[in-house]
Amino acid sequence: MDQAVVHDNSLIIGSIPSIGQYGISKEITNFIKDTGVEIKIITEPSGKLENLLHSNQCDFAFIREVKDRKYFKRIPYAKDQMMAVLPKNHHLANLRKISISQLEKEFFLLEPKGSRPYNLCVNLCKSSGFLPNVVYTDRQIENIVDLVADGMGISLLMSKLVPRESSRIVAIPVEPTVSTSISLCYMSDENLTDLKRKFIAYIKNR
């Protein structure tokens, strides 16, 4: 393992890109105001964040659906539920819940290929007996939502990522219910500084 860089009065914190939707940015800025410490923020997909932790390029990371649990200590931070995101005039838009099998003939607009959200959606469709026809992928959720609203296709997104102010789309819970969790992670074998302990306590007591 690479030699960790010692930060006396600073932290490097990684996060999934949806840093605002889950209130992560607010928690970090509040911690800065309370302590006066310097914090650098890195946003990357969950898999990249795990690699950054392993190579000591960040002190903590907010990760969705942690894979490498053997090496990380995890503090539960948030949970979220998958929604089917449809144009307002879609023929399924008035349903209270949507079965994944009802979406078999749709064009799918998803997060980047190979990402954990993408793989989750594809595997969910496969478990319902079909391979989704993915016609567009993008890291920028607003681009996906705009294209859904314009009628290019539908998406599967976590509830907190769907903009509430849009009147051109609807977001409907899917069946079977799919939930994901976000955790604050750090290396399990790390000798924690007082500052790191303070940040852990801050997140635990938020």
Rank of each mutant, 00 (worst) to 15 (best):
G47M: 08
L157Y: 08
L157G: 01
T29P: 00
C58S: 10
G129P: 03
D194W: 00
D80Q: 05
G129I: 04
S128G: 00
P87R: 03
M1W: 10
G153R: 01
M158E: 12
G23Q: 05
L184N: 06
G14K: 12
Y77K: 13
L103T: 01
L161K: 02
I41V: 15
S18M: 09
F108N: 10
V85D: 04
S46W: 03
V135E: 08
S128W: 02
Q3W: 10
C185S: 15
K196W: 01
K26T: 11
S167K: 15
T43C: 13
L11T: 03
E190C: 01
R74C: 11
V85P: 01
I63N: 08
G153T: 00
Y118N: 13
I144R: 09
Q140S: 08
F60C: 05
I98K: 09
R64E: 14
S15P: 07
V6N: 14
T180R: 05
L157A: 05
I144Y: 09
R64I: 11
S183Y: 12
A171V: 00
G153V: 00
N205I: 00
Y186H: 14
I98G: 07
S10I: 07
T29Q: 14
H7Y: 12
N94P: 00
K160F: 06
L11K: 03
N51H: 04
R139T: 03
T137N: 11
F62R: 02
F199V: 01
I182E: 07
R64H: 04
C58Y: 02
E38Y: 13
S115A: 06
I28Y: 09
Y77S: 12
V37T: 15
Q81R: 13
G20L: 11
I63Y: 11
A61K: 06
M1N: 13
P176V: 00
L184G: 06
E38W: 07
V170G: 10
L157P: 01
I182D: 09
S127Y: 00
Y118M: 06
S128Q: 15
K160V: 00
I41P: 04
I169R: 01
A149K: 00
T137D: 14
T180S: 14
P117E: 08
L92I: 04
L53F: 09
K126C: 01
V170E: 12
V122D: 09
L103I: 01
K160P: 00
L147F: 11
I28W: 10
V174W: 04
V37W: 09
V148D: 05
I24D: 09
K204S: 11
N123W: 03
S25W: 03
S101P: 03
E165Q: 05
Y202T: 00
D80E: 09
F199Y: 10
K88L: 15
Q3E: 15
G129L: 07
E104F: 06
E44F: 06
G129E: 08
L124V: 07
